[in-house]
């Protein structure tokens, strides 16, 4: 028996909005420690790793480990049927071939049940080694979303260049070029608005705008975003989900061709 209850259905909605453009289907791995999801997009360029800890749920029960393959578009449709103040409960039997979403209104007057068929997905799991990153940048998530959106108009790729002084995002294309520099903030009133840079070594990496813009769909989940970078390894974009877990996106860098 698996049962997970979340007071705020909106959180689950936001989580799904953050992954459904990148992935069409994914397996939710449930165990007594929580819910995990790891999946690459079709082209194997980016990877989503989602963790929702069991202690972040209002109620969480998972007797046996369970892997539930879901079509994310269908799941999103179901979650759209919930109201903002609803409580959501996910339920499944041990060997179930379907999962149930139950929405309860705040005053308990309306209860709706949605059952969705599960699917058997053949997915590869990647082992991600623990890495010490040369640069870790924390910045307001809205700011990051804005930068990615603006730069996408200039070119297909963004160069992220991180030094002691700050972090620079640049793109260039047929129209011209664009550069956005952010310096480390000295003092801020709100922690969420801070830009902080921890740097061991300066890095400059090139990434595809298209994917970055899909990652920023997670912006509503968190006020801050954390970018971790090292030379020649994938970028990690992390959004913390308060009291519940996190969503991490990994993106393979673009590599200069040696032969051309």
């Amino acid at each position: 028996m698996f049962e997970a209850r979340l007071i705020n259905a909106t959180t689950l909605k936001k989580v799904l909005d953050a992954i459904k453009d990148l992935l069409t289907e994914a397996t939710f791995d449930c165990s007594d420690s929580g819910i995990q999801l790891q999946a690459m997009d079709n082209s194997h360029v980016s990877l989503v790793s989602l963790t929702l800890r069991s202690d972040g749920f209002d109620k969480f029960r998972c007797d046996r480990n369970l892997s539930m393959g879901m079509n994310l578009a269908s799941m999103s449709k179901i979650l759209k049927c919930s109201n903002n103040n609803d409580t959501v409960t996910m339920k499944a039997q041990d060997n179930a071939d379907s999962v149930t979403f139950m929405f309860e209104s705040q005053n308990q007057e309306k209860v709706s049940d949605y059952e969705m068929k599960l699917m058997n997905l053949d997915q590869e799991h990647l082992g991600i080694p623990e890495t010490e990153y040369s640069c870790v940048v924390k910045m307001p998530s809205m700011e990051f979303a804005r930068i990615c959106r603006d730069l996408a108009q200039f070119g297909e790729s963004v160069v992220i260049c991180c030094t002691k002084e700050g972090v620079k995002f640049s793109a260039s294309g047929d129209v011209g070029s664009a550069n956005i520099k952010l310096a480390q903030t000295n003092s801020v009133d709100k922690e969420e608005e801070a830009v902080t840079i921890e740097m061991q070594e300066p890095v400059a990496l090139t990434f595809a705008c298209r994917y970055l813009n899909q990652f920023t769909k997670a912006t509503p989940l968190s006020g801050q975003v954390q970018l971790s970078m090292s030379a020649d390894v994938p970028l990690v974009v992390e959004y913390r989900i308060e009291d519940l877990g996190h969503i991490r996106y990994y993106l393979a860098p673009k590599i200069e061709d040696d032969e051309s």
Binding site: L47, G69, Q123, E124, P234, I255
Partner: peptide, 24 residues
């Protein structure tokens, strides 16, 4: 030819030995 090549995640992270478990 002018654009640089997009890397792939599988060339950085290794695929774990097939851990897919058909759920039933």
């Amino acid at each position: 030819k002018s654009s640089s090549t997009q890397g792939r995640l599988d060339s950085f992270f290794k695929v774990l030995p097939s851990s897919n478990t058909p759920k039933r």
